[in-house]
Amino acid sequence: MWRQLCDRFGMPLGMAVVALMGIWLILMVLLPQWQMIDYSLHPSLLPAEQGGEKDVWTLANYATFFQNEIHLSIFFKTIWSSVLVTALTLAVSYPLAYYLAKVARPGQAALCLLLLIIPFWINEILRTFAWYIIFAFRGPLNELLFALGLIDRPIRFLNGDIGVLVGMVYAYILFMVFPLYNAIESLDRNQIRAARDLGAGWIRTHRRIVIPHAKPGIATGCIMTFMLAAGSYAVPALLGAPGSRWFTQIIYNWFFEGGDWNQGAAYAFLLLALCIVFVTLVMRLFKVGLGDIAR
């Protein structure tokens, strides 16, 4: 790689590129992360006690998590809900991405993409508040369902998981649509036509031709959505109920309510580590390599 860089940019510029990348990695990624690891391996102490005899290396912060059943259950619920969010987002995005990539005329596709992107110019919190208003007990959605005669009393959307699920699917849909769109777009239209011509119905055509081709895109979209959902704070905080607390809210509480940064750092690392393990497992399961995703 060093050779390629030098061939392309020449020696001085190549070195500059590598140096900049190094500085970026060290200052922006490695040092802060190292600081957090360091925090997570020390007990929470008063400033006066830091560096004193109580300031020892310990795994106690990590142990706390495994001893706390509520935190454990919230953790697994977060993972499970994130899987659900990912699955729902995929289910919503796939037809949309297929339409954009293979059915719509170029003008229509461009318009659709623009309509999809415009809401994302607004801050995520504001968009989530919009859903808060839509889902309110006396909000427009209940009014609409009521007017259509589908319900005879308002539904408390914000009480359970529905609000959080919908809010998240909405928040992360672009991270799913774009990788899917790119993957499906690169499929030769004649492949679809050939499958149809050989007698395949639409379901089989998608199952045997489109989805296998789009697998790297599906994997990328799912991983991004899953990681974002598992690490989301605003959506569960605004649209969730006490019963649907997210693990990120526990981490937040350790940092800013409990003031225990050491404990919070340990929790944050557990979330990161377990998400990585989970994603790796899923990639194994679907036989997708890192190389496929980088494509």
Binding site: D188, N190, R193, A194, A195, R196, D197, L198, G199, I209
Partner: peptide
């Protein structure tokens, strides 16, 4: 198309 007794050979063949 999928119910017709025809089969097509495409210009680019479109093998899977």
């Amino acid at each position: 198309v999928n119910r017709r007794p025809t089969a097509m050979i495409f210009q680019n063949l479109a093998l899977f």
